[in-house]
Measured scan of single mutants.
Amino acid sequence: MSGIALSRLAQERKAWRKDHPFGFVAVPTKNPDGTMNLMNWECAIPGKKGTPWEGGLFKLRMLFKDDYPSSPPKCKFEPPLFHPNVYPSGTVCLSILEEDKDWRPAITIKQILLGIQELLNEPNIQDPAQAEAYTIYCQNRVEYEKRVRAQAKKFAPS
């Protein structure tokens, strides 16, 4: 494992614990031996107030490669969400998460999670990743928002 990646992720964890947006979660997972795995984080993004996503808490896994922060983490909703920019596998399609697009090593975990929260309610229809959600979003916004509200209710924190 890269010392650069681990040191950056340790800084990220410290900064997150000191200050993070209300309702968001970002925690490194534990290895079988109980030690912390900084390369694999369990996160959760709350649906934004005043949107059909409100009330939901959407679980996301963030996986970092050894060359982080040169390369972005892979962000994957578990379980996958109904959304035009979420692949059926759950992987998020967002330009700041793509090395050859808008990724920059200075982007923080907090910025990534806030960017994904923004994307939930403002899909990028130029870059669809899920045919069904994309089609319904474009053709029947009322039905799309109904499905999103049902999903938010399903993923409401207990």
Score class of each variant (00 low, 15 high):
residue 83 H to Q: 03
residue 60 L to P: 02
residue 100 D to K: 12
residue 138 C to E: 15
residue 25 V to P: 04
residue 114 L to H: 12
residue 112 I to S: 07
residue 115 G to E: 04
residue 16 W to G: 02
residue 32 P to K: 14
residue 65 K to N: 15
residue 5 A to L: 09
residue 98 E to N: 15
residue 155 F to R: 04
residue 20 H to E: 02
residue 104 R to A: 10
residue 128 P to L: 00
residue 12 E to S: 04
residue 60 L to H: 05
residue 116 I to M: 14
residue 64 F to P: 06
residue 130 Q to D: 03
residue 33 D to A: 03
residue 149 R to G: 06
residue 133 A to C: 09
residue 40 N to W: 05
residue 130 Q to T: 09
residue 26 A to L: 09
residue 3 G to A: 00
residue 81 L to K: 03
residue 31 N to Q: 10
residue 76 K to H: 15
residue 85 N to S: 11
residue 16 W to D: 01
residue 71 S to R: 08
residue 3 G to W: 12
residue 99 E to G: 14
residue 65 K to Y: 09
residue 26 A to V: 02
residue 76 K to W: 12
residue 10 A to D: 00
residue 72 P to T: 05
residue 71 S to T: 10
residue 65 K to A: 04
residue 76 K to Y: 15
residue 117 Q to S: 11
residue 30 K to E: 07
residue 102 D to V: 08
residue 102 D to T: 06
residue 87 Y to D: 01
residue 103 W to Q: 00
residue 62 M to I: 10
residue 117 Q to K: 08
residue 116 I to Q: 06
residue 37 N to I: 09
residue 13 R to Y: 02
residue 37 N to H: 12
residue 9 L to S: 00
residue 44 A to K: 15
residue 75 C to Y: 03
residue 102 D to K: 07
residue 7 S to N: 15
residue 65 K to Q: 14
residue 42 E to T: 12
residue 137 Y to W: 00
residue 156 A to V: 08
residue 19 D to W: 06
residue 27 V to I: 12
residue 51 T to C: 13
residue 42 E to M: 07
residue 6 L to D: 07
residue 153 K to L: 10
residue 96 I to A: 02
residue 13 R to F: 02
residue 44 A to R: 01
residue 138 C to T: 15
residue 107 I to T: 10
residue 59 K to G: 08
residue 115 G to K: 00
residue 92 V to P: 08
residue 9 L to N: 12
residue 26 A to P: 00
residue 108 T to R: 15
residue 17 R to H: 01
residue 142 V to M: 13
residue 38 L to C: 07
residue 16 W to S: 05
residue 40 N to E: 15
residue 129 A to Q: 05
residue 59 K to Y: 10
residue 4 I to V: 08
residue 139 Q to M: 12
residue 133 A to F: 06
residue 26 A to H: 00
residue 40 N to C: 05
residue 40 N to F: 07
residue 143 E to C: 11
residue 104 R to V: 05
residue 110 K to Q: 08
residue 61 R to L: 11
residue 83 H to V: 03
residue 156 A to W: 09
residue 58 F to A: 06
residue 122 E to Q: 12
residue 92 V to A: 10
residue 30 K to Q: 07
residue 125 I to E: 06
residue 16 W to F: 09
residue 2 S to L: 02
residue 155 F to P: 02
residue 57 L to G: 06
residue 142 V to N: 15
residue 85 N to I: 04
residue 140 N to R: 10
residue 126 Q to N: 10
residue 151 Q to D: 04
residue 154 K to W: 06
residue 100 D to H: 14
residue 145 E to D: 13
residue 94 L to H: 00
residue 48 K to Y: 02
residue 26 A to W: 09
residue 44 A to Y: 15
residue 111 Q to T: 13
residue 134 Y to M: 09
residue 106 A to R: 01
residue 60 L to N: 03
residue 152 A to V: 04
residue 40 N to A: 15
residue 85 N to V: 06
residue 28 P to V: 06
residue 91 T to C: 15
residue 114 L to P: 14
residue 53 W to M: 04
residue 64 F to S: 00
residue 105 P to Q: 03
residue 68 Y to W: 07
residue 54 E to P: 01
residue 63 L to M: 13
residue 46 P to L: 08
residue 110 K to N: 09
residue 46 P to K: 07
residue 104 R to T: 08
residue 84 P to E: 02
residue 45 I to N: 04
residue 131 A to I: 04
residue 81 L to Q: 01
residue 118 E to T: 09
residue 24 F to A: 02
residue 138 C to V: 08
residue 84 P to L: 15
residue 6 L to R: 05
residue 14 K to I: 09
residue 33 D to G: 03
residue 7 S to L: 10
residue 32 P to Y: 13
residue 50 G to L: 10
residue 66 D to C: 12
residue 111 Q to M: 13
residue 150 A to L: 13
residue 79 P to S: 14
residue 44 A to P: 00
residue 131 A to S: 14
residue 27 V to G: 08
residue 73 P to S: 06
residue 112 I to T: 15
residue 64 F to D: 05
residue 140 N to C: 04
residue 148 V to I: 15
residue 14 K to C: 15
residue 137 Y to I: 06
residue 123 P to R: 02
residue 139 Q to D: 13
residue 77 F to Q: 00
residue 70 S to F: 09
residue 5 A to S: 13
residue 93 C to D: 07
residue 145 E to S: 07
residue 76 K to A: 14
residue 41 W to C: 00
residue 27 V to C: 14
residue 118 E to S: 07
residue 35 T to H: 06
residue 156 A to C: 10
residue 53 W to Y: 05
residue 14 K to N: 07
residue 90 G to A: 05
residue 133 A to V: 05
residue 41 W to N: 08
residue 70 S to G: 14
residue 55 G to E: 12
residue 35 T to F: 00
residue 94 L to E: 06
residue 58 F to G: 05
residue 125 I to D: 05
residue 26 A to D: 04
residue 68 Y to A: 05
residue 105 P to R: 05
residue 43 C to H: 01
residue 122 E to F: 11
residue 26 A to S: 10
residue 58 F to D: 06
residue 22 F to K: 01
residue 53 W to S: 00
residue 80 P to S: 10
residue 13 R to K: 05
residue 93 C to V: 09
residue 133 A to D: 03
residue 93 C to W: 00
residue 149 R to S: 10
residue 101 K to D: 14
residue 102 D to G: 15
residue 61 R to M: 10
residue 58 F to K: 05
residue 78 E to C: 07
residue 83 H to Y: 00
residue 77 F to G: 00
residue 76 K to L: 14
residue 113 L to T: 11
residue 108 T to P: 11
